[in-house]
Amino acid sequence: MSEVREMAEQVFADAWDVEATGLDADLWKTLEQTGLARLTLPEEAGGSGGTFADWVAVATAAGQYAARVPLVETELAAWLLHAAGLEVPTGPLSVAVDEGSDTLHRVPWGRAVGGVVVPAGDRVSLVDPASAQVTEGTNVAEEPRDTLVGARVVAEGTAPSTVAVEFPLRAALGRSLLLAGAARAALAMSVRYATERVQFGRPIAKLQAIQQSLALAGAEVAAAEAASAAAAGEAQRVGFPEAALAVAAAKARCGEAAGEVARISHQVHGAIGFTREHSLRLATTRLWAWRDEDGSESRWNRLVGARAVEAGPGGLWALLTGTP
């Protein structure tokens, strides 16, 4: 296990809390102190200068332990600000989509962050959420997804033209890693429950139907982790937007895995898995929520299909394998 992965898993495991909601300020402080909050941002911009391999370990662990912090959003926001030549502020950040008005919809962690970054073409703006009228909302995992009206712009800059293409890809990659982590957590809980739950004199893990279901869930988790890690590796190797196909395939595959793993996990747990007191909901509600955030399977599968059609019969193998 790499040092980064070991540290990340320890940090997030220590913050695990079944009952709490909202921003975990203590965890965020720890992430800042350990350098995990802005992992891939260059050191000269206030980051840690980490690689995408490091990012795989940290983001996956955050998903696995249901971290109540805007980790992926801050990483994205910091990258956008740096690309536009703007200073990256300390504290948690978020990102929002510019819809051509003074209203920003479903801003992740909008009420809890110190700044929201809004890209629009090659323009990047940093707005102050404290100056906005905030209508609080959540996704199904109870993570803040707020509406901000009239937020004041505090900084603005121009980024390279590639940012408009790269931004959704980076967002999808981060979400894929979170999904892989949450799927891993749901599987681990299901395996543990199946070995502990005794029915008719023996653990339900001894039942063939349960074994087959857990095996299928295990395959889905392995596929999600492999696809997301491969996409991160491709991004490290060739950069964005060249890694678009790998990222699209990863987000689509992780979304598909999310549905299967959540379904199987609740089937194994039975009614107890749906209770608020049970920790399984921390994983499965995130699987359901994150599956549709930063692009659904259909959106990213369309990109994969378009690339395959564009390559044609003669170029499909090279497209899939990355060989000339």
Results as ranks from 00 to 15, higher is better:
2 S>I: 06
3 E>L: 13
4 V>P: 06
7 M>A: 14
8 A>R: 12
9 E>G: 08
11 V>T: 15
15 A>H: 05
17 D>F: 04
20 A>K: 12
25 A>K: 14
26 D>I: 07
28 W>L: 12
29 K>D: 14
31 L>K: 11
32 E>P: 09
32 E>F: 08
34 T>I: 00
36 L>S: 11
37 A>S: 15
38 R>N: 05
50 G>M: 07
51 T>E: 04
52 F>A: 09
53 A>G: 14
54 D>T: 11
54 D>W: 09
57 A>E: 15
57 A>I: 08
57 A>L: 08
57 A>V: 11
60 T>C: 10
68 R>M: 11
69 V>I: 10
75 E>A: 14
78 A>W: 04
80 L>K: 05
81 L>Q: 04
83 A>F: 00
84 A>N: 03
87 E>H: 03
90 T>F: 03
93 L>F: 06
101 S>Y: 01
102 D>L: 06
104 L>Y: 14
105 H>M: 08
111 R>D: 11
112 A>Q: 12
116 V>D: 08
119 P>S: 07
125 S>F: 00
129 P>W: 04
129 P>L: 02
131 S>V: 04
132 A>K: 09
133 Q>S: 13
140 V>M: 01
142 E>G: 00
146 D>Q: 09
150 G>D: 03
150 G>L: 06
155 A>I: 03
155 A>M: 02
157 G>K: 04
158 T>G: 00
167 F>N: 12
167 F>I: 01
168 P>Q: 10
169 L>G: 11
171 A>W: 09
173 L>E: 13
179 L>E: 03
180 A>Y: 10
187 L>P: 07
188 A>P: 03
189 M>E: 13
189 M>H: 13
191 V>T: 13
195 T>Y: 05
197 R>W: 02
200 F>M: 08
200 F>Q: 12
203 P>F: 05
204 I>W: 01
205 A>I: 11
206 K>D: 02
206 K>F: 11
207 L>G: 05
210 I>D: 01
211 Q>P: 03
215 A>Y: 02
219 A>P: 00
220 E>V: 00
221 V>H: 06
221 V>F: 05
223 A>V: 00
225 E>D: 10
229 A>V: 05
230 A>E: 11
231 A>P: 08
233 G>L: 03
236 Q>L: 01
237 R>Y: 00
242 E>M: 05
242 E>P: 00
243 A>H: 05
247 V>Y: 08
247 V>G: 11
247 V>Q: 09
252 A>C: 07
260 E>V: 14
263 R>C: 02
264 I>L: 09
268 V>K: 07
270 G>Q: 06
275 T>V: 04
278 H>T: 05
279 S>L: 08
279 S>D: 13
281 R>L: 14
281 R>V: 12
283 A>S: 15
293 E>A: 07
294 D>V: 13
297 E>Q: 14
300 W>D: 13
302 R>P: 00
302 R>K: 14
305 G>V: 00
307 R>N: 04
309 V>D: 11
315 G>N: 07
315 G>W: 04
317 W>K: 09
324 P>A: 13
324 P>L: 06
